[in-house]
Amino acid sequence: MGWQREEFETHLGEVGVLLADGSEPGPVYFDLGSGSHFHESTDWWVYDGSLRRPTATSMRGKCACGWRGERTYPIDWEQVDRRDRDAYDTAGPLKDWEAHLDDV
């Protein structure tokens, strides 16, 4: 789930991730069967390194308009509860995105 402010419908925000080399990974694709459609996700928690996925080392705020937060926040995968990913603290990226909207 992303972040949204009513008056800024084109500025949907979410947690973005960075790899150890500082690059932003593309979407992760999930093969759900024998069909031709593959589900894709850019949710921060899919970059945990499992099942040959890339491992994110940090997070930052990101917006649908292309804005990316300058501040990064380390991800401690040992502290991420796989059953309740929303319990992990993503307040830093959220605050940075909110500041971006204040600037807009």
Rank of each mutant, 00 (worst) to 15 (best):
E40H: 13
D76C: 04
R83M: 08
D21M: 02
P25A: 00
R53S: 10
V46S: 00
S36M: 07
S41E: 03
R82K: 11
D84L: 07
T42G: 06
D43Y: 09
V28M: 03
A20N: 06
T72Q: 13
Y47I: 00
Y29Q: 04
D76H: 10
A87K: 10
S23I: 00
R60T: 15
S23L: 03
R71A: 10
H39F: 12
L19T: 01
T42F: 08
A56T: 01
H39W: 13
E40D: 11
T42S: 11
F38D: 08
G35D: 09
D84V: 02
R71V: 01
D81W: 14
A56W: 00
G26I: 01
D76V: 06
R52H: 14
W77H: 08
D21Y: 02
H39G: 03
D86G: 14
V28G: 02
H37M: 12
C63P: 04
D31V: 01
G33I: 02
D81M: 12
A64F: 05
K62Q: 13
Q79P: 03
D43S: 13
P74A: 14
D76K: 02
Y88G: 05
Y73E: 11
E40K: 09
G69W: 12
S34N: 13
A64H: 03
F38A: 04
R71L: 09
W77N: 06
K62V: 15
V80F: 09
S50N: 11
L51S: 13
H39D: 14
Q79F: 08
G33H: 02
P27M: 00
E78C: 11
V80E: 10
S34D: 15
L32T: 06
S50F: 11
G33K: 01
R71T: 09
G35W: 06
E78H: 15
D86V: 10
D31R: 03
S34M: 10
A64S: 15
D21F: 06
R68W: 12
P27T: 00
T72W: 07
V80P: 05
L32A: 06
S23Q: 08
Y73P: 03
D43F: 07
G66L: 11
W44Y: 06
R82E: 08
G61D: 13
R60P: 07
T72P: 04
G22C: 07
G22W: 10
I75T: 01
T57W: 01
R83C: 08
D84C: 04
D81Y: 13
D31C: 04
R60F: 15
Y73F: 15
D81A: 12
D21G: 05
G49S: 06
S23D: 07
G49Q: 09
S34P: 09
P74H: 08
W44C: 01
A56R: 03
C65A: 14
H39M: 08
Q79M: 15
D84R: 12
K62P: 01
